Computed example of a mutant assay.
Amino acid sequence: MTTTLQKDPPRVLTGGNAVVARGLVKTFGTVRAVDGVDLTIRRGEVFGLLGPNGAGKTTTVQMLATLLPITDGEAEIFGVDVRREPHKIRQLVGVTGQYASVDENLTAAENLWLFGRLLGLSSRDARRTATDLLGRFGLEDAATRQIKTFSGGMRRRLDLAASLIARPPLIFLDEPTTGLDPRTRGQMWDTIRDLVAAGSTILLTTQYLDEADQLADRIAVIDRGTKVADGTPEELKTSVGSSTLHLRLAEHDEIATAAEVVAAVTGEEPVLTPESGGLNVALPDPNGAADILIRLREAELSIATASVRQPTLDEVFLAITGHHSEDDTGHHDPHDDATDDAATSGTKETRA
Rank of each mutant, 00 (worst) to 15 (best):
E269C: 06
N280W: 10
A264S: 15
S276K: 10
G277D: 04
V281H: 05
H252E: 10
H252A: 13
T257A: 15
L279F: 03
T266Y: 08
L247W: 11
E275F: 05
T273G: 10
V262C: 08
A282Y: 04
V281P: 03
A263L: 00
S243A: 15
E254F: 00
L245D: 02
E269M: 13
S242Q: 10
G277P: 04
L272C: 00
V240M: 12
H252G: 02
A263S: 10
G278F: 03
S276Y: 11
R248N: 08
R248S: 12
A256C: 02
E251Q: 14
G277E: 06
L272K: 08
A263F: 00
V240G: 09
L247Y: 05
E254D: 15
E251L: 11
V262K: 05
T273R: 15
H246Y: 06
A259R: 11
V240H: 05
T266D: 09
G277Y: 01
G278L: 07
S276E: 15
A259N: 06
L249Y: 05
G267Y: 10
I255T: 07
P270G: 13
L249A: 02
E251T: 14
L245W: 06
S276N: 11
A250I: 01
P270A: 09
G267C: 07
T266K: 06
G278K: 05
E275N: 09
